[in-house]
Protein backbone atom coordinates (compact mmCIF):
# COMPACT_ATOMS: atom_id res chain seq x y z
CA UNK A 1 0.00 0.00 0.00
CA UNK A 2 2.70 2.37 1.05
CA UNK A 3 5.00 1.53 -1.86
CA UNK A 4 2.06 2.13 -4.12
CA UNK A 5 1.70 5.79 -3.06
CA UNK A 6 5.43 6.33 -3.34
CA UNK A 7 5.54 5.05 -6.88
CA UNK A 8 2.60 7.29 -7.75
CA UNK A 9 4.44 10.21 -6.26
CA UNK A 10 7.64 9.33 -8.13
CA UNK A 11 5.69 9.05 -11.35
CA UNK A 12 4.10 12.43 -10.71
CA UNK A 13 7.55 13.85 -9.99
CA UNK A 14 8.92 12.48 -13.22
CA UNK A 15 5.94 13.73 -15.16
CA UNK A 16 6.32 17.18 -13.67
CA UNK A 17 10.06 17.35 -14.20
CA UNK A 18 9.53 16.93 -17.93
CA UNK A 19 7.09 19.83 -17.95
CA UNK A 20 8.75 22.87 -16.41
CA UNK A 21 5.99 25.13 -17.75
CA UNK A 22 3.34 23.47 -15.59
CA UNK A 23 3.67 25.80 -12.59
CA UNK A 24 3.32 29.01 -14.57
CA UNK A 25 0.45 27.55 -16.58
CA UNK A 26 -1.45 26.69 -13.41
CA UNK A 27 -0.67 30.12 -11.97
CA UNK A 28 -1.97 31.82 -15.12
CA UNK A 29 -5.27 29.93 -14.92
CA UNK A 30 -5.62 30.81 -11.23
CA UNK A 31 -4.88 34.50 -11.87
CA UNK A 32 -7.45 34.55 -14.67
CA UNK A 33 -10.10 32.92 -12.48
CA UNK A 34 -9.38 35.33 -9.62
CA UNK A 35 -9.64 38.35 -11.91
CA UNK A 36 -12.92 37.18 -13.34
CA UNK A 37 -14.17 36.50 -9.82
CA UNK A 38 -13.20 39.92 -8.42
CA UNK A 39 -14.67 41.62 -11.49
CA UNK A 40 -18.07 40.03 -10.66
CA UNK A 41 -17.76 37.58 -13.51
CA UNK A 42 -17.82 40.16 -16.30
CA UNK A 43 -15.78 39.93 -19.43
CA UNK A 44 -14.01 36.64 -18.81
CA UNK A 45 -13.61 36.05 -22.54
CA UNK A 46 -12.68 39.64 -23.27
CA UNK A 47 -9.99 39.50 -20.60
CA UNK A 48 -8.49 36.42 -22.25
CA UNK A 49 -8.40 38.13 -25.64
CA UNK A 50 -6.73 41.21 -24.17
CA UNK A 51 -4.27 39.01 -22.30
CA UNK A 52 -3.42 37.14 -25.51
CA UNK A 53 -2.78 40.39 -27.36
CA UNK A 54 -0.41 41.89 -24.82
CA UNK A 55 1.22 38.58 -23.96
CA UNK A 56 2.02 38.11 -27.64
CA UNK A 57 4.42 41.08 -27.46
CA UNK A 58 5.95 39.76 -24.26
CA UNK A 59 6.35 36.30 -25.77
CA UNK A 60 8.02 37.62 -28.90
CA UNK A 61 10.68 39.48 -26.92
CA UNK A 62 11.03 36.82 -24.22
CA UNK A 63 11.72 34.05 -26.78
CA UNK A 64 14.88 35.94 -27.70
CA UNK A 65 15.81 36.50 -24.09
CA UNK A 66 15.31 32.77 -23.52
CA UNK A 67 17.80 31.90 -26.28
CA UNK A 68 20.37 34.33 -24.86
CA UNK A 69 19.93 33.10 -21.29
CA UNK A 70 20.20 29.52 -22.57
CA UNK A 71 23.69 29.96 -24.03
CA UNK A 72 25.26 29.89 -20.61
CA UNK A 73 25.57 31.56 -17.22
CA UNK A 74 25.86 35.34 -17.25
CA UNK A 75 24.27 35.81 -20.65
CA UNK A 76 21.36 38.24 -20.83
CA UNK A 77 20.29 40.94 -23.24
CA UNK A 78 19.54 44.18 -21.40
CA UNK A 79 19.39 46.27 -24.56
CA UNK A 80 15.89 45.09 -25.49
CA UNK A 81 14.06 48.34 -24.55
CA UNK A 82 16.41 50.38 -26.72
CA UNK A 83 16.14 47.96 -29.63
CA UNK A 84 12.36 48.21 -29.42
CA UNK A 85 12.47 52.02 -29.35
CA UNK A 86 14.90 52.26 -32.27
CA UNK A 87 13.25 49.65 -34.48
CA UNK A 88 9.82 51.16 -33.83
CA UNK A 89 11.09 54.55 -34.99
CA UNK A 90 12.77 53.02 -38.05
CA UNK A 91 9.67 51.01 -38.97
CA UNK A 92 7.39 54.04 -38.78
CA UNK A 93 9.87 56.18 -40.73
CA UNK A 94 10.12 53.60 -43.51
CA UNK A 95 6.36 53.00 -43.64
CA UNK A 96 5.61 56.71 -43.43
CA UNK A 97 1.90 55.99 -43.26
CA UNK A 98 1.77 54.19 -46.60
CA UNK A 99 0.15 50.75 -46.83
CA UNK A 100 2.54 49.69 -49.58
CA UNK A 101 5.55 50.12 -47.31
CA UNK A 102 4.36 47.88 -44.44
CA UNK A 103 6.50 44.88 -45.38
CA UNK A 104 9.68 46.90 -46.06
CA UNK A 105 9.07 48.71 -42.75
CA UNK A 106 8.85 45.46 -40.80
CA UNK A 107 11.93 44.07 -42.58
CA UNK A 108 13.85 47.25 -41.80
CA UNK A 109 12.90 46.95 -38.12
CA UNK A 110 14.07 43.33 -38.00
CA UNK A 111 17.30 44.28 -39.74
CA UNK A 112 17.94 47.15 -37.34
CA UNK A 113 17.32 44.74 -34.45
CA UNK A 114 19.73 42.19 -35.92
CA UNK A 115 22.39 44.90 -36.28
CA UNK A 116 21.96 45.80 -32.61
CA UNK A 117 22.50 42.10 -31.87
CA UNK A 118 25.72 42.07 -33.92
CA UNK A 119 26.82 45.22 -32.09
CA UNK A 120 26.05 43.67 -28.70
CA UNK A 121 27.92 40.52 -29.49
CA UNK A 122 30.95 42.36 -30.82
CA UNK A 123 31.12 44.31 -27.54
CA UNK A 124 31.01 41.03 -25.65
CA UNK A 125 33.38 39.07 -27.86
CA UNK A 126 35.83 41.59 -29.30
CA UNK A 127 36.13 43.82 -26.26
CA UNK A 128 35.55 40.96 -23.76
CA UNK A 129 33.00 42.92 -21.77
CA UNK A 130 30.65 40.82 -19.59
CA UNK A 131 27.28 40.48 -21.40
CA UNK A 132 25.18 42.28 -18.81
CA UNK A 133 27.42 45.34 -18.86
CA UNK A 134 27.97 45.20 -22.62
CA UNK A 135 24.29 45.08 -23.49
CA UNK A 136 23.44 47.73 -20.90
CA UNK A 137 26.12 50.09 -22.21
CA UNK A 138 25.18 49.21 -25.78
CA UNK A 139 21.56 50.04 -25.00
CA UNK A 140 22.52 53.60 -24.06
CA UNK A 141 24.16 54.06 -27.43
CA UNK A 142 21.21 52.49 -29.24
CA UNK A 143 18.77 54.69 -27.32
CA UNK A 144 20.78 57.78 -28.26
CA UNK A 145 20.50 56.78 -31.91
CA UNK A 146 16.75 56.31 -31.44
CA UNK A 147 16.47 59.79 -29.91
CA UNK A 148 18.55 61.29 -32.71
CA UNK A 149 16.43 59.61 -35.40
CA UNK A 150 13.03 60.15 -33.87
CA UNK A 151 13.62 63.15 -31.59
CA UNK A 152 10.54 62.00 -29.69
CA UNK A 153 8.47 62.27 -32.84
CA UNK A 154 5.48 60.00 -33.10
CA UNK A 155 4.76 58.82 -36.64
CA UNK A 156 1.44 57.09 -37.20
CA UNK A 157 1.35 53.59 -38.70
CA UNK A 158 -0.35 52.95 -42.05
CA UNK A 159 -4.09 52.32 -41.50
CA UNK A 160 -3.85 48.78 -42.86
CA UNK A 161 -1.10 47.95 -40.37
CA UNK A 162 -3.20 49.23 -37.42
CA UNK A 163 -6.19 47.24 -38.64
CA UNK A 164 -4.05 44.13 -38.94
CA UNK A 165 -2.81 44.56 -35.38
CA UNK A 166 -6.38 44.86 -34.06
CA UNK A 167 -7.77 42.02 -36.21
CA UNK A 168 -9.31 38.93 -34.59
CA UNK A 169 -9.97 35.47 -35.96
CA UNK A 170 -12.89 33.89 -34.09
CA UNK A 171 -12.05 36.04 -31.08
CA UNK A 172 -8.34 35.22 -31.17
CA UNK A 173 -6.07 38.16 -31.98
CA UNK A 174 -4.30 37.65 -35.30
CA UNK A 175 -1.18 38.95 -33.60
CA UNK A 176 -1.23 36.03 -31.16
CA UNK A 177 -1.52 33.61 -34.09
CA UNK A 178 1.53 35.18 -35.75
CA UNK A 179 3.54 35.03 -32.54
CA UNK A 180 2.45 31.43 -32.02
CA UNK A 181 3.88 30.62 -35.44
CA UNK A 182 7.17 32.31 -34.46
CA UNK A 183 7.18 30.30 -31.21
CA UNK A 184 6.70 27.03 -33.06
CA UNK A 185 9.52 27.96 -35.43
CA UNK A 186 11.82 28.65 -32.46
CA UNK A 187 10.79 25.40 -30.78
CA UNK A 188 11.50 23.44 -33.98
CA UNK A 189 14.80 25.24 -34.35
CA UNK A 190 15.76 24.18 -30.82
CA UNK A 191 14.66 20.57 -31.34
CA UNK A 192 15.70 19.86 -34.90
CA UNK A 193 18.55 22.05 -36.05
CA UNK A 194 22.27 22.04 -35.36
CA UNK A 195 22.05 25.61 -34.09
CA UNK A 196 19.25 24.71 -31.68
CA UNK A 197 21.06 21.67 -30.32
CA UNK A 198 24.26 23.73 -30.05
CA UNK A 199 22.47 26.38 -28.00
CA UNK A 200 21.49 23.76 -25.44
CA UNK A 201 24.89 22.08 -25.50
CA UNK A 202 26.85 25.33 -25.18
CA UNK A 203 24.60 26.40 -22.32
CA UNK A 204 25.09 23.14 -20.47
CA UNK A 205 28.86 23.04 -20.82
CA UNK A 206 30.63 25.27 -23.28
CA UNK A 207 33.96 23.47 -22.87
CA UNK A 208 32.48 20.09 -23.63
CA UNK A 209 30.52 21.55 -26.54
CA UNK A 210 33.69 23.15 -27.90
CA UNK A 211 35.65 19.92 -27.60
CA UNK A 212 32.83 18.07 -29.34
CA UNK A 213 33.42 20.31 -32.33
CA UNK A 214 30.63 22.85 -31.87
CA UNK A 215 31.30 26.46 -32.71
CA UNK A 216 30.64 27.97 -29.29
CA UNK A 217 31.05 31.63 -30.10
CA UNK A 218 29.12 31.38 -33.37
CA UNK A 219 26.25 29.80 -31.45
CA UNK A 220 26.28 32.66 -28.96
CA UNK A 221 26.45 35.15 -31.82
CA UNK A 222 23.26 33.76 -33.32
CA UNK A 223 21.47 33.77 -29.96
CA UNK A 224 22.16 37.49 -29.53
CA UNK A 225 21.29 38.32 -33.12
CA UNK A 226 18.01 36.36 -33.09
CA UNK A 227 17.10 37.93 -29.75
CA UNK A 228 17.68 41.47 -30.99
CA UNK A 229 15.95 40.75 -34.32
CA UNK A 230 12.85 39.52 -32.44
CA UNK A 231 12.98 42.70 -30.33
CA UNK A 232 13.16 44.62 -33.62
CA UNK A 233 10.07 42.83 -34.92
CA UNK A 234 8.30 43.53 -31.63
CA UNK A 235 9.24 47.21 -31.91
CA UNK A 236 7.53 47.49 -35.29
CA UNK A 237 4.44 45.59 -34.10
CA UNK A 238 4.12 47.63 -30.87
CA UNK A 239 4.28 50.86 -32.89
CA UNK A 240 1.53 49.56 -35.14
CA UNK A 241 -0.59 48.50 -32.20
CA UNK A 242 -0.20 51.71 -30.16
CA UNK A 243 -0.89 54.14 -32.98
CA UNK A 244 2.71 55.21 -33.48
CA UNK A 245 6.22 54.82 -32.15
CA UNK A 246 7.46 56.29 -28.89
CA UNK A 247 10.83 56.25 -27.17
CA UNK A 248 9.52 54.54 -24.07
CA UNK A 249 7.52 51.82 -25.79
CA UNK A 250 9.97 49.08 -24.79
CA UNK A 251 10.72 50.29 -21.28
CA UNK A 252 8.98 47.49 -19.42
CA UNK A 253 10.51 44.60 -21.36
CA UNK A 254 13.83 44.42 -19.54
CA UNK A 255 12.84 42.84 -16.22
CA UNK A 256 9.63 41.43 -17.63
CA UNK A 257 11.43 39.25 -20.18
CA UNK A 258 13.86 37.87 -17.60
CA UNK A 259 11.00 37.17 -15.19
CA UNK A 260 8.99 35.46 -17.93
CA UNK A 261 11.93 33.29 -18.97
CA UNK A 262 12.64 32.20 -15.40
CA UNK A 263 9.01 31.68 -14.36
CA UNK A 264 8.40 29.80 -17.59
CA UNK A 265 10.78 27.08 -16.44
CA UNK A 266 13.83 27.88 -18.55
CA UNK A 267 16.92 27.08 -16.49
CA UNK A 268 18.53 30.40 -15.65
CA UNK A 269 22.07 29.00 -15.73
CA UNK A 270 21.52 27.98 -19.33
CA UNK A 271 21.21 24.89 -21.42
CA UNK A 272 17.50 24.16 -21.02
CA UNK A 273 15.13 26.51 -22.81
CA UNK A 274 11.37 25.98 -22.51
CA UNK A 275 9.18 27.51 -25.22
CA UNK A 276 5.68 26.62 -23.88
CA UNK A 277 6.69 28.13 -20.54
CA UNK A 278 7.26 31.50 -22.22
CA UNK A 279 3.59 31.59 -23.22
CA UNK A 280 2.20 30.52 -19.87
CA UNK A 281 4.52 32.84 -17.95
CA UNK A 282 3.73 35.81 -20.21
CA UNK A 283 0.00 35.18 -19.75
CA UNK A 284 0.56 34.82 -16.02
CA UNK A 285 2.47 38.09 -15.71
CA UNK A 286 -0.28 39.97 -17.54
CA UNK A 287 -3.14 38.33 -15.65
CA UNK A 288 -1.37 38.86 -12.33
CA UNK A 289 -1.36 42.62 -12.89
CA UNK A 290 -4.94 42.50 -14.15
CA UNK A 291 -5.98 40.56 -11.05
CA UNK A 292 -4.31 42.93 -8.62
CA UNK A 293 -5.71 45.96 -10.46
CA UNK A 294 -9.22 44.51 -10.48
CA UNK A 295 -8.94 43.77 -6.77
CA UNK A 296 -8.04 47.43 -6.24
CA UNK A 297 -4.65 46.77 -4.65
CA UNK A 298 -2.54 49.89 -4.11
CA UNK A 299 0.82 50.23 -5.86
CA UNK A 300 2.86 49.29 -2.78
CA UNK A 301 0.83 46.20 -2.04
CA UNK A 302 0.81 45.30 -5.73
CA UNK A 303 4.60 45.39 -6.01
CA UNK A 304 4.94 43.37 -2.83
CA UNK A 305 2.46 40.76 -4.00
CA UNK A 306 4.00 40.60 -7.48
CA UNK A 307 7.39 39.88 -5.93
CA UNK A 308 6.05 37.29 -3.51
CA UNK A 309 3.93 35.54 -6.12
CA UNK A 310 6.82 35.36 -8.62
CA UNK A 311 9.06 33.82 -5.95
CA UNK A 312 6.27 31.44 -5.02
CA UNK A 313 5.72 30.32 -8.62
CA UNK A 314 9.42 29.77 -9.22
CA UNK A 315 9.77 27.71 -6.06
CA UNK A 316 6.64 25.70 -6.83
CA UNK A 317 7.62 25.17 -10.46
CA UNK A 318 11.15 23.96 -9.90
CA UNK A 319 11.31 20.32 -8.95
CA UNK A 320 12.94 19.69 -5.56
CA UNK A 321 16.61 18.78 -5.59
CA UNK A 322 16.92 19.58 -9.24
CA UNK A 323 17.44 23.33 -9.30
Amino acid sequence: MKTHTVSHFAKWQRWRAGRPWLGSCLAAVLAWAATVFSGQGQGSGELLTVALTFSAFTVLVSLGQMLVISVGPGNADLSIPSSIALSGAVAMLVMDGSNAMIVPGILAAVLVGALVGVFNFSLIRVLSIPPIIATLAGSLIVMSVAIAIGRGLKIKPPPLFSDFMAMRLFGIPLLAVVVLAVSIAIALMLERTVLGRSIEAVGQNDRAAGLAGMRVELTRFWAYVICAALAGLAGALISGFSGGNSLDQGQEYILLTIAVVVIGGTVVSGGAPCVPGIWSAAMFMFLLVAMLNAAGAGPGLRMLLTGLIIIGVIVAASSPGKR
Binding site: G43, D248, Q251, A294
Partner: peptide, 24 residues
Protein backbone atom coordinates in the same frame (compact mmCIF):
# COMPACT_ATOMS: atom_id res chain seq x y z
CA UNK B 1 -10.87 51.55 -11.23
CA UNK B 2 -7.37 52.92 -10.92
CA UNK B 3 -4.26 51.84 -12.81
CA UNK B 4 -0.70 53.09 -13.05
CA UNK B 5 0.16 54.06 -16.61
CA UNK B 6 3.64 55.33 -15.66
CA UNK B 7 3.01 58.40 -17.89
CA UNK B 8 3.81 56.11 -20.75
CA UNK B 9 1.33 55.59 -23.53
CA UNK B 10 2.02 51.92 -24.19
CA UNK B 11 1.94 51.05 -20.49
CA UNK B 12 -1.28 53.01 -20.00
CA UNK B 13 -2.82 51.22 -22.98
CA UNK B 14 -1.90 47.84 -21.56
CA UNK B 15 -3.03 48.56 -18.01
CA UNK B 16 -6.33 50.10 -19.09
CA UNK B 17 -7.00 47.23 -21.50
CA UNK B 18 -6.39 44.77 -18.67
CA UNK B 19 -8.75 46.38 -16.16
CA UNK B 20 -11.40 47.42 -18.68
CA UNK B 21 -12.86 43.97 -19.15
CA UNK B 22 -13.71 43.86 -15.43
CA UNK B 23 -15.32 47.32 -15.31
CA UNK B 24 -18.88 48.55 -15.84
Amino acid sequence: GSVHGNWTQTVAQKEVAAILSTLP
